[in-house]
Structures are given as structure tokens and as C-alpha cells.
Design a binder for these strands. Structure first.
Lengths: 206, 206
DNA sequence: GTTTTTCATGACACCGTGTCATTTATGACT
DNA sequence: AGTCATAAATGACACGGTGTCATGAAAAAC
């Protein structure tokens, strides 16, 4: 978390700083980003940066968190407009994220360098890798009737699977610079395979 | 790829260097690793390191590639002993990898900092995110009768899905330091969900 | 208007990387 | 066994980036 000093900053200076950081993290991934570039862009002295943030990571995760909050809002909205259908929601959500122009390069750098720590932060937007408040909250919105689960417990694993495949699809989209429709087609195929299952039931062939 | 000079090295010196690098990359992930530590451990001057490798990454990916070759060998062996059943094979494979004592910390650091580049390298052991020779080769070993696919083309996506979920399970195991049996249980549950499908067919309720 | 707390600033110490000029080893050819 | 050419070894050093800290300015409190 940024230091209190950062939050006390006048709105415009804060915004300048945020934009400068965003620009640098859009240029290169976290580990290649340089504080020197950020302060040059923002026009502040080096010492000030450390007045506001612990370090480079602190600034990065602050931005990522902000972005994630927006995504979470979008996700909940979509879930409700799809009447709790998790698959339809994921498909809509996938399209929204890969269509974002504003954050394209930031997202690209982030997805292509998705450490576990980054993934955990990002996951908060639509699922979670731990059973926390978030999971409980989302869980209540989900239509469980259409899911092939025997108890509430299995829902957690269903989430995990969908999240894993979705993450991978994001990475693929950015890594291979797929056009939106091509990424969507692939994602749709994978979601359908997930729905119907990968295994053929030997009792009812075909 | 390491430079020719490295491969020309006498076997024992090469081995010393490999062990030193492995030790450093087991201590910390790629980006935190220091060449200084590696050369100190190996007892060679700084300049020599650059005689052998392009840089830190070069050494890391060399090690990762070596490890991946072993994994690939294990995977093919398991696939054959399971008569081409991809699910049984993955489950055996998962257990083998998380049980490795020798490379535990190296793997942990690698999985928790799985950039796209690292994932691509690692993927070569059991699948691939591109349709390359590897995929074709593995494809021929797979028993497609038990899979719920209509054509050879869908097999690729089935692979993608299984790989995504498996990766995520690896990361989870290392991130939460799960005991082997607990990680196995979770993995089994997820593989079963993948097999039977996440969606309930509304035409045949329950 | 004085004291106290908060914020701004940039020089600097520190550390790691990658380079390069110089030295040393190897070994082929005569 | 000497000359030459190629390959390998070496460590000092330049460069660049990070984080700190002492000092000064500003704001707020009283």
C-alpha cells in the first residue's frame, strides 16, 4: 500500500503520478520498469517517490488493485445481467477485458509476467484462490442449478478451473497478439468443452 | 542457449557451474538471483561467467530446459504405461513432479514466478501452447476414444485446458505449501470435474 | 508568531550487471 | 621446440538503478 503521504496529495498531483506510473508499467513489465522514468515523467524528485511509495512494487500493485476494483464491478454487473450463469458471464467478461484499449499494454505486460503474487491480486476481480469473503459473496450470485455439482463445496473447484482456463486464455491472447474475434472463438470452444466435459461417458457412447 | 565455450568445458567444471547456478535459482527466483552468488559458489571470475552464458536468464533457461527434458521423458513413459489415457497419465505425472525432492525449491521458485516465457519452456514437457511437432507427437500416443471430442482439432483445446488446470494446481501446491496428499486430492477432484463436465445437461437432470 | 508535524529535495552510498583490454593456455603447423 | 593463431581466462571498471538521509521548506497547531 502507498504511504499516507500519497493519499494526502492534492488530486491533480496524485493523478499525474498515477499516469506516469501507468505509462512506465505499460512500457515494460514490473521488473524492467524504472523509478527514474516514473519520476522524470511525473516531474518529481527521487526522494518524493519514496515519500509516497515503499518501492516500485508498491506503486505497481496499487495500480493493479485499482484496475481490479473496476473489473470486479464489471464482473458483478455482468453476472447479474446473465442471471447468475457463470459461463455466459465469463464469456462476456473475457470480451470486455481483451477489448480494453486504455489499459491494453498494462494488461499485456501484466499477463505475460503473471507471477503468483500478481495473479492473486488480479484474481480478486472474479474469483479467488482462497475461500475468502469474495468467494462467498460471488457464490451467492451464481445459479448453481445449471452446474454439475453435488454440493456447495464443489463450486469452489469449478471456480478454480474456470479461472485457470480463463487466465491462460488471456495470456494466450496477449502473447500471440490474437485479434479479438479469434481469441473469443478459442475461448468459446474451451468454455464449451468445460461445460460438456472432456471425457466421453462409456455408458452412452457418442 | 549457453555459448560454445560452455559446452567445451571439462565435464567436472561444467557440473560445478550447473550446481552453483541451480543452488542460486533454488534460493531465489530468476529476477532476484545474482550472478555474483553463482560465480562465488562456482569459484570462477566474473568474466568467465559471461564467457559461458549470455546472461542470468540464459543460465536459468538452460537449467529449466534440462529439467524439462527429464520431465518429458517421464511423461511419455507414463502415457505409455497408462495406455494413452491422458487423465490417468496427468494424475501420475502430477504426483511425480510434486514429489521431487531434488528440485523442490527450484520448481517452487519457478512456478511461483511463471512468466509466459517460463511457461512456454516448461510446457514442452507435456503439452504445448502451439501446434508444433511436440503436440503432433503426443497426440499420436493419446487414446482419443475416451475423449469427448469430435475431431482431432478439438484435442488441441483439450490439451490446453488440462495444461492450464494442471499448472494452476502446481502453483497452488507450492504457494500454499500443501502436503502431497492434499494437493493430490484437490487435483483429483478437479480432473474429475473436467472429465464429467461442469455443466448439468438440462435434458437429463441430476 | 512560535513550535511541531508533515512534506520536499537531491546528493550520495551501495550494489549488481555487462564489457573490455590484457594475459594465459592450447594446439596446429613447420 | 618455436612460431603463430585461435580460444579461454581474468578482474578492474564504467554504467545505471535503488533506496537513504540530512537539510530545508511548508503547513498546521496552539
Amino acid at each position: 500500500m502507498p504511504k499516507i503521504t500519497f493519499f494526502n496529495l492534492p488530486e491533480d498531483k496524485k493523478e499525474t503520478l498515477i499516469q506516469a506510473a501507468k505509462k512506465e508499467f505499460s512500457r515494460v513489465p514490473l521488473y524492467d520498469a524504472s523509478i527514474t522514468n516514473i519520476i522524470k515523467e511525473a516531474g518529481i524528485p527521487r526522494g518524493s517517490f519514496y515519500q509516497y511509495f515503499e518501492d516500485k512494487e508498491d506503486a505497481f500493485f496499487f495500480l493493479l488493485n485499482e484496475l481490479t476494483k473496476e473489473h470486479k464491478y464489471i464482473f458483478i454487473h455482468l453476472l447479474s445481467s446473465n442471471n447468475g450463469d457463470i459461463f455466459e458471464t465469463m464469456i462476456d467478461f473475457f470480451r470486455v477485458i481483451i477489448s480494453e484499449e486504455e489499459n491494453f499494454n498494462f494488461l499485456k505486460n501484466t499477463f505475460l509476467n503473471m507471477t503468483h503474487r500478481i495473479e492473486s491480486t488480479f484474481s480478486r476481480s472474479f474469483s479467488s484462490n482462497e475461500r475468502n469473503e469474495n468467494f462467498e459473496k460471488f457464490s451467492s450470485f451464481i445459479d448453481k442449478n445449471v452446474l454439475n455439482i453435488s454440493d456447495e463445496n464443489e463450486l469452489f473447484y469449478v471456480f478454480q478451473i474456470i479461472a485457470a482456463v480463463t487466465f491462460r486464455s488471456f495470456v494466450d491472447k496477449f502473447a500471440r497478439d490474437l485479434p479479438i474475434e479469434e481469441a473469443m472463438n478459442t475461448y468459446l470452444i474451451e468454455m464449451n468443452l468445460l461445460k460438456k466435459g472432456l471425457y466421453r461417458d462409456s455408458l452412452e457412447p457418442k
